[in-house]
Nucleic acid binder design. Structure first.
Lengths: 239, 239
DNA sequence: GCTGACTCGATTGTATACAATATCCACATG
DNA sequence: CATGTGGATATTGTATACAATCGAGTCAGC
């Protein structure tokens, strides 16, 4: 027995086809490669991915359950488009849950969590400062989500992680619906505040910081939507 | 246009087969008709329900995503069994979310919500008082979940409802794993306290009451599990 | 000219056939 | 006698075939 490698990454098996399709589509939607409301045909996807309809259907079933796509019986599936009320609701819930996550992270984070958090924030900062906005928008979005995910992971609560994963999906969809709105405003300071409170094991401070961040950000998004409520179809990259 | 019926119940169509299978299995698992850990074969279920494997597979895919069953590649699916850490985590998160739900319900509930809440509590009380314990255990469990669900619905936040639905699954599974532990202790008073605070639109009071209820109940469940941690297979109705 | 029903095309829903993988038991071997 | 290997069996994973449903375009009727 070679105990040298304490955690070998589980030897990723020749993963199931449906799993591959699921991951691929999920990433594509979260990455914004499909416009909200865009129709997804089974046959087209099957052909594009070179597999049969079966695993595609099963993957889309999961995505529906995840809330990434809407399914209407006999009418196919399309990328989910969130209405304004649901966006408001998302931020209400997220404030509570991210607050809890930050508080728990402050209490339970390990040394490796701390390192991961610092790294995630550094990556986010590296992508944000003043680089071309439109180009790395997707990257920023993903890195932002990754940082928040790290916080939740540091809480060491699998149930919370699972729920936050659901919210993450909605946040990602929202961000793509408000693409015109550029993200990195004063988020850096807020992220840093969360990180600092977590690292110093100040649970209530972390909770406050996280809640404040979500509230601020949510308000900005909602303001943006109120200003231009008819985003509708964001097919191309508008100037 | 016949505006007389404001909300006709959507005329439940000759529902999709996979939907029927999903509802059936979900109800069966939540109702405790399958023992935790029990194996569910596709062919057996297909035969029993008189449909092909396809809709069964798709339903089980959704159930897996819901967290009701575990799936291992090429090894089939079995009813999920929660480990103690996850049970602890569930109550931590539920305290936060049920608290939020109660607070929002206090702020946003309508007259019909109020009626539904009162009715739900009355039903629960009718089933609980001192009736035979083991006989209507399932009914009590379902009614208890229904009351809490009503509170969440009264909050009028679809995102929160969706997340609480996930938690509800876990709570139901936990209740079945701790079947020996009988439920209706002083829960009535706590339920009544939540209801009263909600109806009097006391948001923070409702939050406190809900959190207190979850904390109390969670502690009891955990104590029960600590006393008899090896529940393992609860196949028959033990005496 | 407009409204309504009908038919055709396309797409999804379900069932079944085929392939791949895992589990179990027998058997040979040390 | 224990252990490892081999094959048989059963179950899941994927592909395809068939049925049902939906949408659009068209033509008849008013």
């Amino acid at each position: 027995m070679t105990p040298s490698e304490v955690k070998l990454p589980a030897f990723e098996r020749p993963t199931l086809v449906r799993e591959g399709v699921y991951q691929h589509l999920r990433g594509a939607i979260l990455g914004g490669e499909f416009s909200p409301g865009e129709r997804l045909g089974e046959v087209e996807l099957s052909a594009r991915l070179g597999v049969s309809r079966t695993p595609v259907r099963e993957a889309m079933m999961r995505l529906t359950q995840d809330g990434l796509i809407d399914t209407e019986a006999n009418k196919g599936m399309r990328v989910r488009q969130l209405a304004l009320p649901e966006i408001t609701e998302t931020y209400v819930v997220r404030e509570e849950l991210d607050g809890l996550a930050a508080a728990l992270a402050a209490e339970h984070h390990t040394a490796s969590d701390a390192a991961a958090l610092r790294s995630a924030l550094a990556q986010l900062d590296a992508a944000s400062p003043s680089a071309d906005q439109s180009n790395n928008y997707r990257e920023q979005t993903l890195l932002d989500l990754a940082f928040h995910r790290r916080v939740v992971e540091a809480a060491h609560n699998a149930v919370l992680l699972s729920l936050c994963r659901d919210l993450e999906v909605r946040v990602a969809l929202i961000k793509h619906q408000t693409r015109t709105f550029n993200a990195y405003l004063h988020t850096h300071d807020q992220h840093a505040a969360i990180l600092e409170a977590v690292l110093s094991r100040d649970a209530e401070g972390a909770r406050r910081a996280a809640r404040h961040h979500v509230r601020t950000f949510g308000a900005l998004v909602l303001a943006d939507l109120a200003a231009a409520p008819a985003h509708a179809a964001h097919t191309g990259e508008t100037a």
